[in-house]
Amino acid sequence: MTNLETRPETTLSAPTTNRTAGTVALRVLKHPALPAFVGMIAIWLAIGAIAGRGLVETISAGIIIATFLVIVGIGQLFVITVGNGGIDLSVSYVMTLSAFLACQIMAGNDANIATGIIVAVIAGVVAGAVSAALIEFVGMPPLVGTLAVGFALQTITLIYSGSVVGVASPALSDFTTAQIGPFPIFGIVGIVIAVAFAVILKRTSYGRRIEAVGQKPVAASFANARPALIRASAYVLSGGMAGLAGVFLAAYSGGPSLGLGTSYQLASIAVVVLGGSLIAGGRGIISGLWAGAVLLTLLTTLANITRLSGGWQFIIQGALIVLVLALSRNPLARR
């Protein structure tokens, strides 16, 4: 290849990373996940101060319950990050249906754990594929397409659940609550899942495409990515993750119920936004999502301790989201 004669004034600065203490501190301060972590720690300490409960028990229980939200939230994060107004409103209904399906299959027997989980995930994947088809090929707006799928699933669940009495396998139930010393196993699994998806999003070509399509679908299509396909994959992923979260939640709470997923519909969106991901797409922050999920969980704990009514809990949640959004405005708009 012909190499250009480099002009003397063209001083090349290679990708140098000066890891001085100052630049590291600056990077932490500028990180979009910072508000979620700060909020999480503040509420954790507040609980300790108000209730006088042990800090370790508080965070340990919080991390377990937050893990369900982390798992659905990751799917939601991919859908939101891939852009085009993407939001998956079907996750709560997928969770409920998957919970019923898996518990029927497991029927309280440990031998059926794998089958139950696989069927639950497949149900979610199918639901996600239908959403994707409605959005990418029929051309529905994501809100409408996923809500339509969600309502269909809700009806199916209503009809089907009448004839089913399912029980999760005891081993799976134990798994969601077991501890090694002070460490909750399920909480650690949640962290591992979050790390794995953070690596997928930031360090694989698939993840890069998700963010690229979320920023500029036309530009991505001229750089050898297929936006429709990438977007469709995010809905499939979201369905699968919601299915998985549904099984775990049923196992944790002793069995499926019709209202199992309800609170996750909006909470899964809230944690994405709280974590510093852009609601308009193009930038997903999974570490922030994890902290946001723990934050919301601890917030509920705090509200319970202080005997706040459910209404106040929602008002505080809403105010928190408004605050975070106001603090971290779209970086595109800032320039």
Binding site: E211, K216, F222, P331, L332
Partner: peptide, 14 residues
């Protein structure tokens, strides 16, 4: 390579 870089080129968040 497009000269219409705002729409068909750059990924502005990166």
């Amino acid at each position: 390579v497009s000269g219409d870089r705002g729409v068909r080129g750059i990924f502005p968040l990166w």
